[in-house]
Simulated scan of single mutants.
Amino acid sequence: MSQSQQVRVAVVQAAPVLFDREGTLERVASWTARAAQAGARIVLFPEAFIPAYPRGLGFGFIVGSRTEAGRRLWQRYNEQSVEIPGPAIEHLGSIARQHGVFLAIGVIERDRLTRGTLYCTLLYFGPDGALLAKHRKLKPTGSERLIWGEGDGSTLSTVETPFGRLGGLICWENYMPLARTAMYAKGVDIYLAPTADNRDTWQATVRHIASEGRCFVLGCNQFVTRDMYPEEVLREEALPADAPRIMSRGGSVIVSPFGEVLAGPLWDEEGLLTADLDLGMLTRARLDFDPCGHYARPDVFRLEVDERERPVAAFRIQG
């Protein structure tokens, strides 16, 4: 990799049209066009951008019971989610192809077979519009466990590009040391960390990952206000009375392999962060620390990762 080789990347800090898949796809098209006009070759959107990260909503869950209003709200959420393959995937692919970019975006994926399980998923599209890979969140956090299923090791994905390997984890998966190690062992160069965490402490997390993994890190979050929630959604389940006006204040950021902030963090507004990544920095950073190379001790520590898909049933034809 030439020391002079560079790539411009973009992180989109924006809100979807909450609970509206088609409206959000139009927002994706608009923001991707802006990123491409700014010269970006890699564009990242936040976690659960389509159709929404449902911050503040409980979907009627109480230990031991569920409400009818909560079930109806979850039905709406389910119906606005993304199936693979499907029209939304074709639309996203056409956006990537139109602008010639590697596009990564967080979606809520609906199980195509049962239509009754949702996954928090990160999709990767190539500049030819092809869906290159997906990653399903391994462990939804807190109340997310009530509305999203768990992914398995079969989607611990990386994508080869002319600029190195893309890969990453979603939100608090990045607190899982073994999951991070698995991604480092796959040789990730540009680590994607779409999130819903808008705390100041998240900045320390992404800077640590960059330093630990000796990779560039793109952290990406939404900026969402209370008045963006559709009235019909709030009729099903109101936000808490003390919900703040700004529901998610962002904090998107781009970090170098030395843990230095290259762009951001961006707070309290929508916006586009861009940075020119000096890819030679990857090699220079690994001179003294390569987490799965000369700084590993496989004679002492060993990680085993099961990447098999885990279907609920395996059917065999009797011969």
Rank of each mutant, 00 (worst) to 15 (best):
Q3C: 08
Q6L: 05
A10W: 00
A10V: 01
Q13T: 07
P16Q: 08
P16W: 02
V28C: 07
A38M: 05
A48G: 07
G64R: 08
L73F: 08
L73H: 06
Y77S: 03
N78D: 14
E79C: 07
S81Y: 03
P85G: 13
I89E: 10
S94P: 06
A96P: 06
Q98C: 09
H99Y: 14
L103W: 05
V107Y: 02
E109I: 05
F125L: 14
G129V: 03
R136M: 09
L138C: 03
P140M: 07
L146S: 07
I147T: 10
S154N: 15
T155I: 07
T155P: 04
S157L: 11
T158S: 15
V159R: 04
G168T: 05
I170E: 08
I170K: 00
V188Q: 01
N198H: 13
R199C: 10
A204L: 15
H208C: 12
E212V: 02
V224Q: 09
T225A: 11
D227M: 07
Y229D: 02
E236K: 05
A243L: 09
R245P: 06
I254F: 01
I254M: 04
P257Y: 08
F258M: 12
F258L: 13
V261R: 05
L262P: 04
G264M: 04
E269R: 15
T274H: 04
A275Y: 00
D290Q: 05
D290E: 12
G293Q: 10
A296Y: 03
R302G: 12
P311N: 08
A313C: 12
R316F: 13
Q318L: 13
